[in-house]
Design a protein around this nucleic acid. Structure first.
Length: 111
DNA sequence: AGTGGCGTACGTCATACGCA
DNA sequence: TGCGTATGACGTACGCCACT
């Protein structure tokens, strides 16, 4: 493993990774915030905009967590598969040895 | 010291899927 | 059928290592 837990650290320490500053669709949420935040005049449309922004942020946060959990489960699954491979390889080796031994016995009897 | 390749983790988007 | 969740795909950041 080349990674030393750096990114989780930066997340935990509250450092904002660069990719959070510039979201791919050019910061939809950010531009909404910009549009909604100046002044506290709460016109119905700006209230709606804020609601939309809030919903989007909640959705992104939930999806972020889901993605993390998903990766964790995937890693666990891969580890299980690797363990299973190791077990089956051992079994295979043992069976091959056993077969060899039985063949030997059979050959000597036949002589 | 600078740099390119590689591996890993992350966030986001799109979409499939299951449930009320 | 609309909604929430899970997951694949993609782009990005970052650390490490070998090479120059």
């Amino acid at each position: 493993m080349a990674v030393t837990g750096d990114e989780t650290e930066s997340a935990a320490t509250g450092d904002i990774p660069a990719y959070q500053l510039r979201s791919p669709n050019s910061g939809l949420a950010q531009s909404f915030v910009m549009a909604a935040s100046p002044g506290s005049m709460e016109s119905p449309s700006s209230q709606h905009t804020e609601e939309v922004t809030r919903k989007r942020e909640v959705r992104l946060m939930k999806n972020r967590e889901a993605a993390r959990e998903c990766r964790r489960k995937k890693k666990e699954y891969v580890k299980c598969l690797e363990n299973r491979v190791a077990v089956l390889e051992n079994q295979n080796k043992t069976l091959i040895e056993e077969l060899k031994a039985l063949k030997d016995i059979y050959c000597h009897k036949a002589e």
